[in-house]
Design a protein around this nucleic acid. Structure first.
Lengths: 188, 188
DNA sequence: CTACGCGATGACAGTCACTGACATCACATG
DNA sequence: CATGTGATGTCAGTGACTGTCATCGCGTAG
């Protein structure tokens, strides 16, 4: 065994989430993660740029999904409605992964460095959304602000969904949060 | 000289900004910053938690200012208007510091780790704003969403201000950005 | 079947951010 | 002039991350 077991990358991600959950992010060394995955520390860094990134392997796929949905929204849709289409597409990914999402969120919530990484992933998402909106003809600063608003809704909605006891769909929570944002910004 | 020169903390911040500008964040070691400030590496870490934090010494004061303005906004003001009052107060701090702001923004824009730190400072600001709004009687999720919206306006407004050639006031740019956000979220 | 090439992994040395422990200095106060 | 206190220096150590080279498993040309 050892060399040439398949799925090294996924094994590392699984081992990392387990160890971060068991003893905390800071108390886990990269060498321990690699060992549990049957690999060496050096190989860990060939698959992930750093100790944080191992929790964010899916962020590229999520961003692509979100952005494509915005790009392919009906031509006449308003910017905010295009963003809403992106939220729907993104929300669908998490169906049936609520427990995994919860565990991951708990690990991130417990450590500042991991929160930083999560925030920059969301910022990257926001930038990509603004780009997609501009390609739809939306001008600045409306594009950036719509993107920021969309990500804010995603963030708040996702937090409420992982925290909630009941079994509402993420997509439902997203829709409600978006309506709340509209109500709130209409208030002035 | 050496021991007991005054303002060690400020000297470190100045040396760091200079070195990060001259040769980049990654190419600068903490030992070099300390040396330029006439101190040792160990002393650097007594003043700043890490190599990034040295660029964010003023964030606590900014947050306090922003939050206090929200808390002290007129009683009957809508949540979004209370946030607007906070934006005004925050904007005032940067009057006459445009060049310094530009240099600092350039350093941060050039490095991902620094962007992460900036984002978590903004997230902290958002959380504090949501808190202040809740103390005004605003309920969730309106408080969080208003806070996120306020920070989004701050972020976009600040970027436009440092990027702009003309000499508009930051406060003016903030007001415009807020109006844009309102227009955009009303669109659906 | 064998030699060769290629991509993934291991082994090892090195840099640097960051921390704990203890000594030392400048100044205030009695 | 003695003593306490807070800021600084010194030193040793851990762990994240990188560069370099050797090694392994497997496919493929001959």
């Amino acid at each position: 065994m050892g060399r040439w077991e398949p799925n090294a990358r996924e094994r590392l991600a699984k081992a990392a989430l387990e160890l971060y959950s068991e003893r905390g992010y800071e108390q886990t060394t990269v060498a321990e993660i690699a060992k549990r995955a049957g690999l060496t520390e050096r190989t860990f860094f060939r698959h992930y740029a750093d100790k944080r990134e191992v929790l964010f392997g899916g962020s590229v796929a999520l961003q692509d999904l979100f952005v494509n949905a915005v790009a392919e929204a009906p031509g006449p849709a308003a910017p905010i409605d295009a963003a809403a289409a992106g939220l729907e597409a993104a929300a669908a990914v998490f169906d049936g992964r609520r427990e995994h999402s919860r565990q991951r969120q708990a690990v991130i919530a417990a450590n500042t460095e991991l929160q930083e990484r999560e925030l920059i992933k969301l910022a990257s998402l926001s930038a990509a959304l603004a780009d997609a909106l501009r390609r739809r003809g939306v001008t600045e600063p409306a594009a950036s602000l719509t993107a920021e608003a969309g990500v804010a809704v995603f963030k708040v909605g996702f937090e409420r969904w992982t925290a909630a006891a009941e079994e509402r769909t993420l997509s439902q929570v997203m829709r409600e949060s978006l309506e709340e944002l509209k109500a709130v910004t209409a208030g002035g």
